[in-house]
């Protein structure tokens, strides 16, 4: 039977952290999460791993495998050269809890600042009608399983590049799903520009590359949102019109995003994009 050599980050905050090596017997079709479970069941019962469905539907088991952000339940051992060690590390963008588990609560705090779906007051639900092709794009955004790999890989968040907070690709996708819902009445453009920091995204598309749901985050969500914001705030005709009609703040304008704390210090610099 083949053996995989796992090199797994272990440690807690406020300690340097270390890599422990485990030889794991390989069965056909095995994924990295299976190997981590084998380690828990046979070698390191307290190895901290976050997971739930093991079917790429819940987005819990995110980690960095050989430096690349991945769902460990969907990462096949057969994709690796088993003569080389496979390095498994926690997501770098978020603060460490222990071993492979990070504190992703910042994402939930950001999410709470987004104005939810707002249906029209004057159209009774019995009259709501829309065609499948009208919602295909919205359904694409809503495939998101909140694995936060896009947040992890986003250099703006990962490297703490900006003075003001940036909501990150995940929440631009959520906002896009709301803004482009056929019946939504809210206007999140000012929120996206100011609190959300949409301008910080410089379209490197790293988020799209790591998305396990294959959502075209940059092309289909962020760029259309940027265009909407630009039309509202940077189009000269709109500026004149807005001056004439007076200022109307949009939904959740003036909201403040929390600041993302720094990620695990103990991981290697080996890295993703």
């Amino acid at each position: 039977m083949d053996t995989a050599h796992l090199r797994v980050f272990r440690g807690e905050p406020n300690e340097p952290g270390r890599y422990e090596e485990f030889d794991v017997p390989v069965e056909e079709g095995m994924v990295v999460l299976d190997a981590l479970h084998w380690v828990q069941g046979h070698a390191a019962p307290d190895l901290a791993v976050r997971w739930n469905c093991k079917a790429a539907k819940c987005g819990s088991c995110s980690a960095e495998v050989d430096g690349r952000p991945r769902l460990t339940c969907k990462t096949r051992l057969s994709d690796f050269d088993l003569d080389q060690p496979i390095t498994v590390e926690p997501m770098r963008a978020f603060p460490l809890i222990r071993d492979l588990v990070t504190d992703v609560s910042w994402n939930y705090a950001v999410n709470a600042t987004i104005e939810p779906f707002k249906p029209p007051d004057d159209v009774p639900q019995s009259e709501w009608r829309w065609q499948q092709e009208d919602i295909e794009r919205v359904q694409e955004y809503r495939k998101c399983i909140e694995c936060f790999l896009c947040q992890d890989v986003c250099h703006v968040l990962r490297n703490h590049e900006t003075e003001r907070p940036f909501m990150g690709p995940r929440f631009l996708v959520r906002a896009a799903g709301l803004e482009m819902h056929p019946l939504d009445q809210a206007d999140r453009r000012e929120y996206l520009k100011d609190a959300g920091g949409i301008g910080y995204c410089n379209i490197t598309k790293c988020c799209t590359e790591v998305c396990p749901e294959h959502i075209k985050i940059t092309d289909n969500a962020i760029i259309p949102l940027k265009e909407r914001v630009a039309d509202e705030f940077y189009d000269p005709i709109q500026i004149v019109w807005r001056t004439l009609r007076g200022r109307r703040p949009g939904s959740a304008a003036g909201a403040e995003l929390p600041v993302l704390p720094t990620g695990p210090g103990g991981t290697s610099d080996g890295g993703s994009s």
Binding site: E12, Q40, D46, I97
Partner: peptide
């Protein structure tokens, strides 16, 4: 085995 922090065992 191990401590109290995020210990699946």
């Amino acid at each position: 085995a191990g401590g109290r922090s995020f210990n699946p065992g």
